[in-house]
Design a protein around this nucleic acid. Structure first.
Lengths: 122, 122
DNA sequence: CTCATTACTTACATTTTATATAGTACCTAA
DNA sequence: TTAGGTACTATATAAAATGTAAGTAATGAG
């Protein structure tokens, strides 16, 4: 998060890959440590900043903010601020965000399958 | 890649997340920069080290080796060495590796959809 | 003996991502 | 007047991922 150096080889490689492989493109967007989990929670409806924080016990406020900003930038979630005191901010998936559902489901079931397999091999 | 520090908060968080969220678990495994692209190529059949390298023009041999080792460790690919000179090593998806197909397809189509959307908004 | 080929290793440097810690503004209720 | 909740921001640092450059082993061809 924070800064990326647009002259690095790493950056160029990401661009090049994303350019020809939609799966790499997608993986760059949702590949963060908390991204999928946040989306997964939001699949069941809009949530406030504080609610999300409670659902993700070990996340720092900074990380949560960064992840939410990144998701917002990518149009995956929308942010609604209510001018109240204390402040209230709600996050909700956009249509393209909801469209992640099959991806998340596919990952979930593969993850479970893989976990089973690995467990049984030891 | 390379080293992970088993005392870091990051490590603990990953474990905790992976523990309860299969999608985070899956994402940790296939989340590398090249992982999905490699699997994607292997979906169409076994390949040699050198072939893969040519398909991924910007990857360094080091990165390719690291990614392949990680995939092998996670039982996603199998490695067959032929005792020839010069050496020949073939990589092939295991059953659980092939089971990634729906995940990759879901990511691909979401990626394309997302890319379209973003493009049209500018 | 020297060179080429393939699939790696190793040591090191850089870039990217994640965490820790300490703030801030706002108003409200005590 | 002071404490408290909410959703942040700023700065520093640690850790992980990726990249660069240079090797290595084995052997058969010339």
């Amino acid at each position: 998060m924070s800064e990326i150096k647009e002259t690095s080889t790493n950056f160029a490689n990401k661009i090049a890959l994303a350019d020809e492989c939609p799966e790499a493109y997608a993986s760059n967007i949702i590949g963060g440590q908390w991204t999928l989990v946040i989306c997964s929670w939001l699949l069941s409806g809009k949530m406030r900043f504080g609610e999300l924080r409670k659902k993700l016990p070990n996340i720092t406020e900074r990380m949560l903010t960064l992840q939410l900003r990144k998701l917002e930038e990518h149009k995956i979630i929308s942010r609604t601020i209510y001018a109240e005191v204390p402040p209230r901010v709600e996050y909700e998936l956009t249509p393209i965000g909801y469209a992640l559902k099959p991806v998340i489901k596919a990952l979930e079931s593969w993850g479970e399958e893989h976990r089973e397999l690995v467990k049984n091999q030891r």
